[in-house]
Every structure is written in structure tokens, then in C-alpha cells.
């Protein structure tokens, strides 16, 4: 009789432990799934972009060693942008990341070109003609519409913090003295 009375609680404890382990496993995978979905949503959910009617914009940029002036430009998506590049010292170039747009201005001369700002985001423009030691870092910035990547990045940063805290709870670290 004694062995029987002993076995019963063992079996129920075993199945309880198994249940708990399964629950924990489901919980962990649930969190992983939730974070993966959140990550994808943050990175790829289409966000509404305020629509402004396209306008013509003429922007005069002075290039000198080793700066563009103004160094930051802001236009709306869809704008027709005309750049007037004026070089005040040596030959300078203007090459816009993400757009196939390039200009080259001789000293004292103006080079002009037009493009449609059809891609939104922040794009660097760089001097494309070697003009001195800091030439590789002669950089400016064109903002087309709102910087959605920055907004997504901020959300991603917050998700990273939450994921870090939850991950330590879900996957306790053996090294840690404090995490239970």
C-alpha cells in the first residue's frame, strides 16, 4: 500500500512540472513572436506622409573648402528641385546619395541641375571632386518630407529596451546574482 500512496503524488507532481515547463516554453515563444512582429511592424508599417502639392524650388548652394552653404536643405516629396551650385574657391562637385544626380562647378562658375524629389527620407550630398584633405568629409544633408527612418529608429530603441528587460526575465542569466 505504501508504494501506491507514494507514487500518486509523484505522478501528479511530474505532470504538473511538465505542464509548467510547457507553459514556460509557450510563454517564451509567445514573447519572441510578439517582439518579432513588433519589430517588423516598426520597420515596415507604411506611415502617412503629409501631402503637399509639389512645388518648384530653386536652391543656391555655395561650395567652398570643405563645406556646402547651406549644408542642410529641406523640401517636400514630389518637389521639382533646381540646384545652383556655385564654387567660391576650387572645383567642387555635388553628388546626391540615393538619387542619380551630380553637378560639377568650376571656381567662380555656377552649375545648375534639376531633379524631382520623389523619394522621401534624409539623403547626404557630397563633394565629388577631390578638393583637399577634408574632401571625403565635405557633406551636406537633404531632407525630403519627414524623416520616417528616424521615427522608426526611436520606436525600435524603445522596443530594444523592453526586449532586453523581458529577455532577462524569460531567459534568466546564470551569471547574474540578482535575477531570480
Amino acid at each position: 500500500m505504501a508504494p501506491q500512496t507514494c507514487r500518486r503524488p509523484d505522478k501528479s507532481m511530474e505532470s504538473k512540472a511538465l505542464n509548467n515547463a510547457t507553459k514556460r516554453l509557450w510563454k517564451r515563444w509567445g514573447w519572441i513572436f510578439l517582439f518579432a512582429v513588433s519589430l517588423l511592424l516598426i520597420l515596415f508599417t507604411p506611415l502617412p506622409i503629409p501631402s503637399n502639392s509639389p512645388a518648384d524650388r530653386n536652391i543656391r548652394i555655395e561650395a567652398s573648402m570643405f563645406q556646402f552653404s547651406p549644408g542642410e536643405l529641406k523640401v517636400n516629396q514630389g518637389d521639382r528641385v533646381t540646384i545652383e551650385l556655385v564654387s567660391t574657391d576650387v572645383v567642387h562637385g555635388f553628388s546626391l546619395d540615393g538619387y542619380n544626380f551630380e553637378l560639377k562647378a568650376d571656381p567662380g562658375q555656377t552649375a545648375t541641375g534639376t531633379f524631382i524629389a520623389d523619394k522621401s527620407g534624409v539623403f547626404r550630398f557630397r563633394c565629388s571632386v577631390a578638393c583637399g584633405n577634408l574632401h571625403p568629409f565635405m557633406i551636406g544633408k537633404l531632407k525630403v518630407g519627414p524623416n520616417l527612418l528616424l521615427l522608426r529608429s526611436i520606436a525600435l530603441s524603445l522596443l530594444a529596451v523592453i526586449a532586453a528587460l523581458v529577455s532577462l526575465r524569460m531567459f534568466p542569466d546564470q551569471q547574474s546574482r540578482y535575477i531570480k
Binding site: 529608429s153 522596443l159 530594444a160 529596451v161 532586453a164 535575477i179
Partner: peptide, 18 residues
């Protein structure tokens, strides 16, 4: 770059908690 910085923040937060 965004992902790398997010990984850095994730990692630093884990270390901070640990």
C-alpha cells in the same frame, strides 16, 4: 546602422539589469 545601435541599446540594457 539603426539595427546596430538598437542592438547596442538592447545589450547595454541587459547589462544594466544584470
Amino acid at each position: 546602422q539603426v539595427v546596430l545601435l538598437a542592438v547596442g541599446l538592447f545589450w547595454a540594457s541587459r547589462v544594466a539589469r544584470r
